[in-house]
Design a protein around this nucleic acid. Sequence first.
DNA 1: CAATTAGTGAACGTCAACGTTTAGTATTGT
DNA 2: ACAATACTAAACGTTGACGTTCACTAATTG
Lengths: 215, 215
Amino acid sequence: MSEKNASPAAGGPGRPTDEAKTEAILDAGRALMFAGRFANASMDQIADAAGVSKVTLYKRFGDKTGLTEAMIRGQAASMTAMIHAANRDAPTLRDQLRNFGVTLSAFLLSERFYHVDAMLTALRRDQPGATRRFFEAGPGTMRSELMAILGAAADREELAIDDIKLAAEDLLSLWRGFKEVELRFSARETLGSEELEAHVDHAIDVFFRAYRAQG
Amino acid sequence: MSEKNASPAAGGPGRPTDEAKTEAILDAGRALMFAGRFANASMDQIADAAGVSKVTLYKRFGDKTGLTEAMIRGQAASMTAMIHAANRDAPTLRDQLRNFGVTLSAFLLSERFYHVDAMLTALRRDQPGATRRFFEAGPGTMRSELMAILGAAADREELAIDDIKLAAEDLLSLWRGFKEVELRFSARETLGSEELEAHVDHAIDVFFRAYRAQG
DNA sequence: CAATTAGTGAACGTCAACGTTTAGTATTGT
DNA sequence: ACAATACTAAACGTTGACGTTCACTAATTG
């Protein structure tokens, strides 16, 4: 009555589960997601695209909501990694922020992000509150890492910041920017890399003017 | 072959169309939308909630996508009105911006907005590019109105602004803020009115420090 | 009254997707 | 060999919603 759950701990008799198939499913899901077709795709199509039987798909993920969650979870993990990678050392504070901002903005202003966001919206529609678990992995981590950078700068008295958290949120908002809105409405094309850098630099300019030491 | 289209120009014989029913449908749709249930609601349920036959519903809006579009269109119109109302005179620039920001942020940081956004996302999924038509009614108008305010302030040399458009986008981004992200992830409760005012004021503070005259 | 159009309620046909079952094959331990 | 488990392909039952049709009633013009 409880035997059918989770992994059979392996080692026992019987054919072992092929983990590669789990990956294949997630890969196929990601491909559909980034093509903006995941929400409309049937389980049959997903199984097909993954080269896997539908039964296997259901065995692994339970139902479509389960698969959706797993995919967002994977995306969240890769975002955390991305953010950590973005937060790398650089000669000056400005360079450090530039690194951070370019990586972040490149993601926020990409089609990729839009589709992840759309999936989150769909998930919330089916399971209100399910999205909360992904806050930490995404925006929460972003904010923490940026707070660390800004806190250090404040300690060095490079910046005059009262409330580090608020300041980090300000800079994040500027990086997200109005361009994200334009993209959401299909009111502009994706940014080229020069535009992106200009965008990030402008945000840093504004931020520095607002928070420079000795106001 | 072309007689069945549009309105029969009225005046002819026959029972006249009851415009109140059109409104009833839109009202019911709005109610469902703000309850976050529109996307899941069947046409039968909507017709039911509106106290109208399903046939009437189809006669007026064609299909569910048509109804969705009509509802967003209505929402866009009321947003335009709201923004105009928010842009009212006040003794000082700061007061004027506060009026604007509070009205805008109250909307952006409400459940209402989240659901409108979710509908836009759903619409874009079914008809890519359809959202573009709503950019002007929403964010576009916002930006224009704010640009007018900031432009005037720059002319009076109250602010030192190079690029009015960029500056307006900066302030809008700050008003939207990280709190919108937290709400999107259900990572915080809706703001109370004091919190809201504090949020708006903080954004204005940051903006003024970045764009004050005589830097 | 006759003609014409709007509206209703209920039933209908259709379809797409979900998730399950079945019968059989593949791969492993004992 | 044998038991146990993974996997597949195909078929199946079910549900839910879409959009339409039908027979009938309501309101309006001439």
